[in-house]
Design a protein around this nucleic acid. Sequence first.
DNA 1: ACACATGTAACAGTTAGAGATACATAAACC
DNA 2: GGTTTATGTATCTCTAACTGTTACATGTGT
Lengths: 145, 145
Amino acid sequence: MNRDTRLSDVLHVLLHMDKANALLTSDVLARSMGTNPAVFRRTMAGLREAGLVRSEKGHGGGWQLARPLCEITLLDVYEALGRPNLFAIGNRSEWAECLVEKNVNAVMADTMAEAATLFATRFGEITLDQIAPRHAVSASVHSHR
Amino acid sequence: MNRDTRLSDVLHVLLHMDKANALLTSDVLARSMGTNPAVFRRTMAGLREAGLVRSEKGHGGGWQLARPLCEITLLDVYEALGRPNLFAIGNRSEWAECLVEKNVNAVMADTMAEAATLFATRFGEITLDQIAPRHAVSASVHSHR
DNA sequence: ACACATGTAACAGTTAGAGATACATAAACC
DNA sequence: GGTTTATGTATCTCTAACTGTTACATGTGT
């Protein structure tokens, strides 16, 4: 199963947008994301609706951040993408009558819910300026092995 | 992206195998898993190698548990399946030179590692007899909403 | 008007995984 | 021993979801 790299891709692009400090076109940004302009726009549509970025049409148009990096959390970005599914595992049939199935589903669902909460908490704690290259990545965010 | 339901499927089947208390054929067990015998055997191969179940060929052959339910944890089963990937999200390129990319990857990898540890811990705490229908699912395992 | 950029619908291509088939191996029964 | 029944596994096909692509409409500034 191929992993959904949109969150990672978008974070990457947002940091580059901050560095540029000017309107950048879909064409340029798509290349830095390793894809094409149409996919880029499709991916960024949610961020525009969420008010994280602005886009302008026509001559000299393009994309820019709508807020400073320190006011955007990973959770904001994740939610703007439409809360993409986090897990590769799951239950086959959601509403089986079998008691065994119900118990199995409950255990799986609980653990996944707990993990989802962990993701939300961590993502909510991290603002984009903390990931920007001028800062060293803090120990609380990045454990060295 | 379709979820990997093997862990859920296998737990289901293992509990049914315990209830039956006799050798059950791939044909029967595959049906209870909603698939066909070849897929069932492919899925269960790891569990046999891990010593969680035994299989016998020929007349009257089939599958049975190699240990009591109380001596099998979800983690045992998960590992016997070859530790299937837990997450649907990830990074596009693992070893980019870009500093932005490195920081983004580090944040994502850290959060996912933490979540993976959470899964391993929870799975390691739960034995299969705790999921068996004769027991009510305990509050620590199943939160009621 | 024209050039340029975004917005988005619709279609094509890719790929990982499940499903299916075939056949080898092995054990029990006659 | 030969037949029946079951597992073991390689190999191929099928499918579904997603990315990539194309096309065209919309909007904006010169």
